[in-house]
Design a protein around this nucleic acid. Sequence first.
DNA 1: GCGACAG
DNA 2: ATCTTGTCGC
Length: 260
Amino acid sequence: MEIGDWPTTEAEAVAAQERLRGAADATGPGPGPEEARTVAGVDVAYADSRSGDGEGGGSLLVAAAVVLDVATLEVVEESVHVGTSTFPYLPGLLAFRELPSVRAALDGLTHRPDVLVCDGYGLAHPRRAGLAVHLGVLTGIPCFGVAKTPFVSRFEEPGRERGAWTPLTLDGERVGRALRTRTGVKPVFVSVGSGISEENAAALTLRLTPAYRLPETTRHADHLAGRRLAKELGEPDGPDGPGGPGGPGGPGRAPAAGSA
DNA sequence: GCGACAG
DNA sequence: ATCTTGTCGC
C-alpha cells in the first residue's frame, strides 16, 4: 500500500490488514543463521505515549534501524528518523503507528539487510497481520517479530532451558513459538512476518540472544532511539543553537514532519 | 455490554 | 510505549 491509501481511521486500518493477510510470502524459508550475513532491528521511541496524537498533530517520536553482522553481532550501520506520530496506538493496529517512521529509518540505510527483526508480532495477530507482516511485504525483505508478551495467542510453558520452545496458537492455528532465549527467564514470542520460515526465525532469534532475553538487534535499536529522543527533548534547537547549521551528527535523518 | 489488549 | 530507586550478581 502506498501513502495514497494509507488508513486514517480504525475501520480503514482493519480493512487494510484483511487485504494484506494474503500478500505475505508464506513459502520462502528465507535465510537462517548460516545464510544471513546481516540482520536489521527496528524500534520506535515516543516522547508522549498517552496522548499519542490527536486529530490535529502528533507527538515527537524517533525510529531507529540498526544493522548487525550475524556472524559477529557487531553493529554495521545505524539510522534514525525523527518525526511525529500520525496514528494512535490501538491494540492490533500497532503497524499503522510505527510503519511510517520505521520505513523512513530503513530508507536511511545504505545496506539492504538480509533479514528484518521487529518488536511485536507477525502472524501471531488477530488478523494474521502484525507489524512483521506489514514490514516484510512492504520491503520485500524476510521479516519476523519477537514480542515480549503473547497478547491473544496461547501457549504451554516451554522447558526451563535456553532453546526450549512450545507452539504459539491462535484460533487453533500455529502462529509462532514461545521460545526460551535465556535459561530460567520468561520466553519471548516469535512469529513469522513474511519470506522466512518459523524454523529460521527461531534459529536467528537464538543467534541474536547470546546474553539477554531480547535480540541484540532490538536492544540496539531500542537504545539508539531512546538516546536520540532524549537528545531531541533536551536540545530542541540542536547543538549549534537556534538557526545554526550542523545537521544530526553521524547517522540520522533531519527532522521530518509527519503530515502537512 | 464491559474489560483486556503487540508497542 | 513511558514514568522511576534500589538491588542482586558477574
